[in-house]
């Protein structure tokens, strides 16, 4: 774990002309190049099917790329899809899914401690005390011995965030973390993410929450049809987006 520590100048994630196509379909990612800087919050936006999920899933190897190269926290990844490199990345990059994907047969506590104990070989005692602390932060400490199915969607998603944080990741990936939630539950999850951002976590967030993006994002990536349309700092993007396509999308979102 001592190797490949990114220097302050090095980006957290660097994508160089990555391409991805599912079966015989159109390109889901078409020559995408970008950098995610250490400590920044990058919000990814774009219409449905534009490749947002595909993009962030390549960052931790859930999707293999067909061409191009990725560098995640100094670990190189390309079309070879080297399993060992991918597992090194996954130990340092957390991910939160739209559908939470908690393990329904395990208690909340076991959901959170599973990977620290099994992957990082930490002691159960230490992992459990950390889990309690994380659940405290997320405001759901009293549910620790329940099963995921006994919690509301918002609570489940906060457990999922705690589960990812338990591995002490350096980068967090979020794929539409609030899209499966009731409107009144969205805020509690966004609050948890806000707190995380204010602690300086490097975050890549796919979301349609304009309010959150305006307030928390450092930069915004706008995608369409598998291509990067615009990558701009958040203030510029929301006030005077460079591209006509971005402006049209923002207009639609606001109405």
């Amino acid at each position: 774990m001592t190797t490949a520590l990114p220097s302050p100048m090095q980006p957290a994630i660097q994508a160089s002309a990555i391409c991805k196509r599912y079966d015989q379909g159109p390109a889901a990612l078409d020559q995408v190049s970008l950098e995610v800087r250490l400590g920044e919050v990058l919000v990814v936006m774009g219409p449905s099917g534009s490749g947002k999920s595909t993009l962030i899933r390549t960052f931790n190897g859930l999707e293999a790329i067909d061409a191009g190269a990725l560098n995640v926290l100094g670990i190189h990844l390309d079309a070879d899809h080297d399993e060992r490199q991918i597992r090194r990345i996954r130990r340092r990059v957390g991910m939160v899914f739209q559908q939470f994907n908690l393990f329904p047969h395990l208690s909340i506590l076991d959901n959170i401690t599973l990977a620290p104990i099994r992957v990082q070989k930490r002691s159960r005692q230490e992992a459990e005390s950390q889990a309690r602390q994380l659940l405290e932060q997320m405001g759901i400490a009293e549910h620790i011995h329940k099963r995921p199915g006994q919690l509301s969607g918002g609570q489940q998603q906060r457990v999922a965030i705690a589960r990812a944080l338990a591995l002490k990741p350096e980068v967090m990936l979020f794929d539409e973390p609030t899209s499966a939630l009731d409107p009144e539950r969205v805020k509690e999850v966004l609050d948890a993410m806000r707190a995380l951002a204010s602690q300086g976590m490097t975050m890549v967030v796919v979301t349609h929450e304009l309010g959150f993006a305006r307030e928390v994002a450092d930069r915004v990536l706008f995608m369409d049809a598998g291509r990067v349309v615009e990558l701009n700092d958040a203030r510029s993007f929301f006030h005077h987006a460079e591209e006509e396509r971005s402006r049209r999308f923002l207009n639609q979102m606001q109405h």
Partner: peptide, 23 residues
């Protein structure tokens, strides 16, 4: 998606089977 979640947490294929899928 259960296997995916296990993979994203760094579990290897055997651990994912033994701890998540089979139970």
């Amino acid at each position: 998606t259960q296997r995916e979640a296990a993979a994203a947490l760094g579990l290897n294929a055997w651990q994912s089977l033994q701890l998540v899928v089979l139970p």
